[in-house]
Amino acid sequence: MERPAASPYSARTVAAGEPHPLEFDGLVKRYGRRTVIDRLSFTVPEGAIVGLLGPNGAGKSTAMRVLLGLQRPSEGHARVLGREAGQPGFRAAVRKVGAIIESPPLYKRASALQNLEIRVRAYGLSTADADVRGVLNKVGLADRADDAVGDFSLGMRQRMGLALALVNDPSIVVLDEPTNGLDPGGTVEVRELVKELPRRGATALVCTHRLAEVEAMCDYVVVLAKGKLLRQGSLAEVISSAHGNRLAVRVAPEELEVATRVLRALDLGDVRVIDGEVTTTRIPENPSVVTRALAGEGIYLRGLAVERASLEDAFLEIVGGAAA
C-alpha cells in the first residue's frame, strides 16, 4: 500500500509506514525570547534534491542543526529517517547523513587525507574500508591529499567539506552553501556531484543563495524568511507562481473572444486581451495544452510566446511580499 508523500509538492509516493528521509514537523526554535524558526513543517522526499532558500537570518542553518541533533528544538520535531535526536534509532539514522553546515568542518592543521581518516574512524571504519583517495579524486583534491587543509584556498576547503560529507557514502546529504567560494569550473563540478546523488539513491537538502544553482540542481524548493515557511513546491510551480510569467497567444481578431474563453477555462491566471493578443499570467507546464484546447474550438494559432520568470523573480517576490 502506498500513501501520498506528506509534502504537498511531491509527486513521489512513500510506502506506508516508511519515513521520509528528512522531515520538519511544527518545528519551533527560540533563542531566549527571539524566535528563529516558527512552526516549520516540510518533508524532503526520497531521491529528491530540495533547495532550501531564504534571506540571511531566515533560519536555514538553524533548521539543519536541529535536524542533525546539534541544537534542540524548542517545540515540534525534526526527523532524520523518522527519528529525532534523543530517540532510539537516531544514531543509526544520522550516521547515514553527510553534512556541511556553514563553513566546512576541518581540522586545519591536519592534511586532507588525515581529515578524512579521522572522519572514517569516527564511523568505526578504516581508510581501507572507505575509499578516501577516491573521494578526494572525486572532489578534485587528489594531488593535495598530503597538504594541510589550513593552507587550502576557500574553494579547496569547500571541496574538502564535500569530501567529508561524501566519504561515508551517505544516503542523505545536507549541504549549506556547497558552492561558496568555488570558481565557475568548481561550481559546475559540485553541481554535477549533487545532481548525481539521486542516481545512486541518495536524497539532498541544499541550502544556497545562488538561485541559478538551485534552478540547475533542485527538483523542489522551500522558501523561508524570518523562520517561517513562505512557499514550497516543485521548482516549476514556484517559478510559475511569480509575476513576470506571461503566455501570449496571437489568433485572428475575430477569434479573440473565443480564445479568451478557452484560456480562462485552462486556469492560467489572469487572462486578458492586450494589443491584439490573449495573454495569461500563468504558464502551463506543457504549453501544448493551449494549442490543443484552441484547436478543439477550431482556432489555429498565428503565434505563441512564452516569457518565463526566473527563480530569482519568484524568490524576491515571495520574500518581498512577506516583508511587506
Partner: peptide, 18 residues
C-alpha cells in the same frame, strides 16, 4: 575545546550523536 575551536562538532556528532 578542539571541536569548538575547529567548528567540527557537526562532523563529530553526525558520526556519533551520543
Amino acid at each position: 575545546t578542539l571541536e569548538f575551536a575547529s567548528g567540527t562538532w557537526q562532523r563529530t556528532l553526525t558520526a556519533e550523536p551520543d
